[in-house]
Amino acid sequence: MALLRKAGIFLLTLAIASVLVFAFMAVLPGDPAQVALGVNATPELLAQTRHAFGIDRPLPAQYTDWVGGLLTGNFGRSYITGDAIGPQLVDRFEVTLWLVGAATVVAVIVAVPLGTLAAARHRKASGTVVSGLSQLGAAIPAFLAGIVLVEIFAVSLRILPSGGWTPPDADPVAFLKGLVLPALSLGLVQAAVLTRYVRSAVLDVLREDYLRTARAKGLKPAQALVRHGLRNAAVPVMTVLGLQLATLLIGAVVVERVFVIPGLGSMLLDAVGSRDLIVVQDVVMVLVAAVLVINLLVDVLYTVVDPRLRRAR
């Protein structure tokens, strides 16, 4: 029942988002037909092209066509190349998912132990150092981290490629090698932010009475924290991680450019550059949908982690 309500909210949000994305594109100045044909195009040819793009029709009709297409898997054709957008979008999306997924793994693997350590030793020097470093790390933009990482591992040490993309089924080793630097540059910055949230969540849990009960049973402080604390600290951390995934998708746009990765981000930037508005519209819609799906998944995961939320929802 509660899940149905959540799904309903999800669909409603998606619908509103589609209207907004469409409206933004519609109010942008510039004529796609003019862009596609150049300045010397004849009025007849322009009119013909507008008709072919379907942009000579009223906006509501254009919108329903577009959304109807999305629902049936038809993403339309590029204004510039004339290619179908759908298949390309699927390929690009897969690439971005790999990147964002790997970056998330990096962020979690780094942030959970570090944040926990910073909390458990918050009165000691080591805890303060970790907090300070994470503060610093959170201030570094992902593309800068990427450039520094390339400088070290690709240019100086020459152990990892500076960019490019190998599909996993073509050459798994080259795929992984190519994934390391972009995932690190995207993930480490997120890890710095996440570390601070893990720290404060664990600090809260450390003050809980049930941790004292765990100690009273005879568990040592670290055992008590791991067995009884971390799972309860997970709920607030998951919220932040869900929000971060949205940031990661946006961050991927820039990092893909730095590392020449053919994902959604570079597709979006290329389309913006060539004013291929229908592609921009599709990519933005896919990104929005991805963020909403992530939030829905986080909501479902809450109830898995925290039994108190099961009855309430």
């Binding site: 009475d209 049930y210 009960t213 309860n232 925290d306 039994p307 108190r308």
Partner: peptide, 13 residues
């Protein structure tokens, strides 16, 4: 030892 506050002394998860 048994503590004062039973409502918060057990691990909720």
């Amino acid at each position: 030892m048994v503590f004062q506050e039973p409502m918060t002394a057990l691990n909720p998860s």
